[in-house]
Design a protein around this nucleic acid. Structure first.
Lengths: 343, 343
DNA sequence: TTGTATGCGTTATCAT
DNA sequence: ATGATAACGCATACAA
């Protein structure tokens, strides 16, 4: 039997080469003390010669054994938020010697359901999801024979599972309050049509306004912009109003960038603030106030919640704890341009 | 047996509930025509009632069966290049009903080796790697019992595997040639200490220079900057020379951004060009010429090569084709600032 | 110290 | 049309 033979060698092959049974080979390779040192050496040599690797799939078929795999479902990996979250999950999961099975839904709830079923069929030990759509019944652990599920970035709706959230409300309220402290009375709100984050952040916007006795002009609230260009148009339309806003608060980075473009093009000194930090915020020639947070920490946190649930399930300890909810704090960060505009 | 019982139901459970054997249940659920319509209905009802899902782990234990999983190994998911590549891989692999097992090496070659072994132990059908280090012997399919391997972004070194590359040389040469066409005779080169891309892009830089009869000043070649700040310092030192460069060519986006900062701070009109596109390139108040490409397409391409090899292996058709090498073309893109500087 | 029998869940093969 | 048997690779339980 040569190394390049194609089929992966089994314990039987290793045993045969070492002149022992498959069982002894298994014991020797696992470090079972009940194996003669000589035998162990022979088995190890045989395993090395054959390039033997234990078949983890077969192993996880045995009772009580687990697959050592964790499912991760995100809407869009090209979005830095999700890829950094994925990195956090991978880091925490890998630390335990487990693997991450990654899937991208493209925001399609139907795809999400199919992926969840597929992952369950592959017997992953747990699933972390950034849910795409409204209905979450397919994420109910009961439907998954108690496979633990943890939600990230959006709360559970109807299903009793752990989740890790961002303080969307508080972050927005704090940033908007700073605009108001700066003297702004007419503030425009721009955001994407997201099902959870935008309403929460808008709620923060309204809360800060109300606290200052302001009543937002509904003409200045637009939540339909998915990309920079449409955000720029929306911002530009507001700037063209008879009473334009003196500041914008944007619900995500694409809307923030669109607002910046509109302001730059118009040459006004409208202030811009928004959710989501980005690396070159100090290079676009404007002062910015951004709500920052750590997507990677959210991923780590989600993974830790999940690993905890997996351990609980192993313990078989009858009743499991109630659904946990972790909220990660945000911070407001000020950016001053490298090169101030000097018109 | 209730849905929330915990242990996942097996074919035996489904069969028992439907009053048939596990074998018949298996056939019924797979759509085997040799099953009485009445029986099929009963089995399907039982499966639905129990929330039965075929155990793919057990299934792949059977002869000739495969795991339906593909390994993907990248250095750093937080880097948009790798996360977009991962998206491309996931998209292509998911289209075939397969899954991606994602791992992050952090650039550590030792970790990479361990991950490859782990993936092999999990019997993935193939592995896509963006290699971290120099030695690639652990990626030799012979060592992996002919598990197909495809390299992305870096060529194979010593191992005969397929790879998908970017035209690093050509892209850099084209961009630098444009700087030279623009009249620049002293051009600085800034890059990170990468093992493959930087040397290739530097080769393109030198090739374009040589074609124009220029001999690059080695004082103006610096390849040690991993982040924006160190790139800015390196660029600033060059600008402080008695004969400063009139243009920069940068080997990646962080160096490009660092160069932009240095130029903005100094207030010179030094031209900046570089590899890697970024979304807000038109908002940093400078003209830029960037080498663009599609990381997602690279991921898709790598996945397609891999899937092709997996199919080949299934076919058992004796000799396999020689190692393929696909090179993806780049394009040079011009950015004009939204708001020209008006000092 | 080592080996045999057994079973995990599924399915190919051969019986009925 | 359905069922019994066996086997995939591994590891527990028990026997030698």
């Amino acid at each position: 039997v040569s190394l390049s033979e194609g089929a992966a060698p089994t314990l039987r092959d290793v045993g045969a080469r070492a002149g022992v049974s498959a069982m002894t080979a298994s014991r020797a390779l696992r470090g079972d003390p009940m194996v003669a040192p000589t035998t162990r050496k022979r088995v190890q040599a045989a395993a090395a010669a054959l390039g033997y690797r234990r078949n983890e799939l077969a192993r996880s078929l045995r009772v009580g054994s687990t697959s050592g795999m964790t499912g991760l479902i995100v809407p869009n990996l090209a979005n830095p938020f999700y890829s950094e979250l994925a990195l956090g999950v991978e880091t925490a999961v890998a630390r335990r010697g487990m693997k991450v099975v990654l899937s991208n839904t493209g925001g399609d709830p139907v795809k999400e359901l199919e992926i969840v079923d597929d992952l369950a069929a592959r017997r992953v030990d747990g699933i972390i999801v950034v849910p795409a759509g409204g209905d979450q019944s397919h994420l109910d652990p009961a439907r998954l024979h108690d496979t633990p599920v943890v939600l990230a970035a959006r709360p559970a709706d109807g299903v009793g599972v752990d989740c890790v959230l961002l303080d969307d409300f508080g972050g927005a309220r704090e940033a908007v309050a700073k605009l108001i402290d700066g003297g702004h009375r007419r503030i425009g709100f721009l955001g994407p049509p997201a099902a959870w984050t935008t309403p929460e952040r808008l709620r923060g916007f309204r809360s800060a306004s109300a606290s200052a006795g302001l009543v937002p002009d509904e003409q200045l609230v637009r939540c339909e912009q998915r990309d920079i260009t449409s955000a720029e148009h929306a911002a530009d339309r507001m700037l063209a109003l008879p009473q334009p806003p003196t500041a914008f608060f944007c619900s995500n980075s694409r809307n923030t960038l669109g607002a910046c473009r509109a302001v730059q093009r118009r040459g006004t000194d409208t202030a811009v603030s928004g959710f989501d930090d980005f690396e070159v915020a100090d290079m676009i020639g404007m002062s910015l106030r951004l709500v920052t947070y750590q997507p990677e920490a959210m991923g780590r946190q989600a993974a830790e919640l999940l690993l905890g649930r997996i351990d609980e399930a192993r313990g078989e300890g009858g009743e499991k704890a109630a659904a946990r909810r972790v909220t990660l704090q945000t911070a407001v960060r000020e950016y001053t341009p490298v090169l101030p505009r000097t018109p």
